[in-house]
Design a binder for these strands. Structure first.
Length: 296
DNA sequence: CGTCAGGTCTCTA
DNA sequence: TAGAGACCTGAC
């Protein structure tokens, strides 16, 4: 993928970029540390940096950054080396996905940090997105490192495992994590002691990586698939949350199909692109509120 | 006040 | 080995 990049003071502009719509990227459920600003742009924190992303016409402007960070961090973070046009062309052969893609054509799957994503998705279990974001924000403010103030707001990095592993259950609960606090503490101890090297899991096969992740208390099939898809470059992972379950039942499989069987179905149908299909379907289901009034 | 939300764990038959 | 029930928390 080649881009026409313009460098200015504190900003990098990528001209005429297709397949990049901030709203789709930041609101398709893969990340929790990006907030919409009054001007419609999004400000987020990742890899100890604060950055603002704004779409102007066909250009994307990255503010509060520089060419070096763009090359070293953001190019990979925003998955800019991947050709989404080809992925969408392939998936659009399926009628349902063809429609779903039209709603979320600017989605990209971010390459996020495994440790932050592992904890974030432990917190996501039986929780709501605003609450998840709030918990992560408090955790970072209390136990992360201060990064900088940007447009009147202070930003903090996500706390390291060897900081969280010293906390009490109560201290973690007090960040709004509820019953998941014990899972967070447990995971912190496993990671800080290197009992499981989560940074090496991306080198394993998807089933093997999944089995390793499921060893953590509080991580089941859905959360492990999220971790693999959003931070370990496993594009064949297919996380099935309530929305994906609904949209799959609505369009593809019988109601009451077991999650494992939906998983198998998606694996066979979408293969290596399952993760991308999941994102388009998830966004589509939420936009349309598919199955919202149905009982589980 | 119940209900319920980006699931997972525990207990029971 | 599958299925029901519990679970922090806060918004409706």
């Amino acid at each position: 993928m080649e881009y026409n990049i313009i460098e200015n003071k504190d900003t990098i502009t990528v001209k005429n970029i297709k397949d990049f719509i901030p709203k789709h990227i930041f609101e398709c459920g893969q990340c929790f540390r990006w907030d919409k600003q009054k001007d419609g742009s999004y400000t987020g924190v990742a890899f100890n940096r604060v950055i603002n992303v704004k779409k102007e016409g066909d250009d994307i402007i990255f503010s509060n950054t520089n060419k070096r960070d763009f090359d070293d961090i953001w190019f990979n973070y925003f998955d800019l080396g991947r050709n989404y046009r080809e992925i969408k062309q392939e998936l659009a052969k399926d009628d349902i996905l063809n429609k779903a893609i039209k709603h979320g054509q600017g989605i990209r799957i971010l390459n996020q940090d495994p440790w932050e994503i592992l904890i974030s998705f432990i917190i996501s279990a039986n929780n709501r997105i605003p609450m998840i974001k709030k918990s992560i924000k408090i955790l970072s403010k209390r136990y992360g490192e201060y990064i900088e103030e940007y447009k009147g707001e202070k930003y903090y990095s996500f706390p390291l495992s060897n900081v969280l592993d010293d906390l009490s259950i109560e201290e973690i609960t007090n960040c709004g994590t509820g019953f998941r606090a014990k899972y967070i503490l447990n995971a912190s101890k496993i990671v800080s002691s290197n009992q499981i090297d989560i940074y090496k899991l991306k080198n394993l096969s998807t089933p093997d990586a999944r089995n390793q992740l499921m060893l953590f208390a509080g991580i089941g099939p859905k959360v492990s698939d999220c971790i693999m898809l959003f931070s370990m470059n496993k594009s064949d992972a297919f996380p099935i949350d309530i929305w994906v379950k609904r949209v799959m039942e609505y369009f593809y499989v019988d109601e009451g199909t077991k999650l494992m069987d939906i998983q198998k179905y998606a694996q066979e149908k979408f293969g290596n692109l399952a993760g991308f299909a999941q994102q388009y379907l998830f966004y589509y289901a939420r936009e349309l509120g598919i199955g919202r009034n149905k009982k589980r």
